[in-house]
Nucleic acid binder design. Structure first.
Lengths: 214, 214
DNA sequence: TATACTATGTGCTTGTGATAACAAGAGCAA
DNA sequence: TTGCTCTTGTTATCACAAGCACATAGTATA
């Protein structure tokens, strides 16, 4: 039976794994593999095959029972979910060491493309890092609106973050990835996500410490 | 009633929030706040006060009913959980742009200290970034054993990751934070965690896309 | 000392994600 | 067509985390 394209609510954990699956599928594709089974994806990603099937089933029925999934078509179906079918365009604020590392990383890998970067340092403005042009932070609103960018990565000192966040929200940004683990004030319709290496290391310390003390 | 120090099993989500609480408490401390309530922490961290209280209760009873928590003593109690009471020492593999950004970040902020870095590029070996000395990857086992380092951050190209992971495990590393979202082979007693900016951005794309399509 | 007040700590309910077990569908062969 | 095999898609169960709501215990005040 054909079902409506998306089930009611899709768990965040599933969405996170979808990113992982995409990586795996691309890897299979590059190896020339045409057909795979849920078990193959599961092994490669370190999850259970039932999880893979369940995750995929949230979006529709893509497999053939008794056979498996067609790598190519599964990939393009997943790409279709984000409606991008190409690069996912994002902006980056803060072209310091971390910021430029991310730009470099995005040129080498995967699906995300940083199409505009911003900094307040005049020495950096108007230069290019790879294909990414660096603008003044004063131009954030203009450029973001011009290119209809919806996602921004923030790689600036914590003290400046909220000020920039306000500008981004005003410019129409709908999701912010902050590289500093500090609370952000945003409207309800703006997604916020944190990535912080040192926080994660601290978390690992907690985990290790508790292992012995239980 | 005094209870045994740690309750049976502590949820991962709680441990993650503990890191966040630490940040908030330090922030309160710097502002000169002596006494706080669960509601204060909750607001600052964007969670419910009952969650804060429950999280803390996993480790013991630190508050005074009718008053709240003493900032200073709560902080040192939490620090005590990791048995470090000072810096948390970690190693870093790969002194590229990303790696050196992390080292710089760790000198400026928070609790984690990178006490040894490793690279295979001879130009980088024996130099120092801040207070962190850069060693040859050939010395990983020696140095890690010498300083009894238990946690390592990996910031190298995906193709080299597994090779380094094997060396780290052999050297006694018990937790690995990988900056590339690729599966790692490790023994069961080694914790593995991933932090990948671009994966997180992709995840946000999924989230935004689905918002409209439900 | 008694009483009112305040914020903690904690059972208990509720909701959500993970897991396993199973039913259903597709291909193939006789 | 019938039966067999294989792997998907789904259902039912289990485990766990979130949040409420209240009993508890300490503080302040008279």
């Amino acid at each position: 039976m054909m079902k409506n394209y998306f089930k009611s609510v899709i768990p965040e954990t599933t969405l996170r794994r979808m990113v992982y699956y995409t990586r795996c599928l691309n890897s299979f594709k590059n190896e020339g593999v045409k057909l795979i089974q849920s078990e193959d994806i599961a092994k490669k990603c370190g999850v259970k095959s039932s999880v893979v099937r369940k995750d995929l089933s949230y979006f529709g029925e893509f497999g053939v029972r008794g056979k498996g999934y067609d790598v190519e078509s599964l990939l393009s179906t997943i790409n279709g979910i984000t409606n991008t079918f190409g690069k996912m365009n994002a902006a980056l604020i803060g072209v310091g060491k971390l910021g430029s590392a991310i730009i470099k990383h995005s040129t080498e890998n995967f699906n995300v493309k940083i199409i505009a970067a911003f900094d307040k340092d005049k020495k950096k403005i108007n230069k290019e890092i790879g294909e990414t042009k660096v603008y003044s932070v004063k131009d954030i609103e203009n450029i973001i609106k011009k290119y209809k960018i919806k996602i921004a990565i923030i790689a600036i000192p914590p003290s400046d973050v909220q000020e920039i966040v306000d500008i981004l929200v005003k410019a129409g940004i709908k999701a912010i990835l902050s590289l500093a683990l500090i609370p952000l004030n945003v409207p309800d319709d703006v997604e916020v996500s944190f990535v912080d290496v040192l926080s994660e290391v601290e978390f690992l310390f907690y985990k290790l410490s508790l292992r012995r003390n239980i």
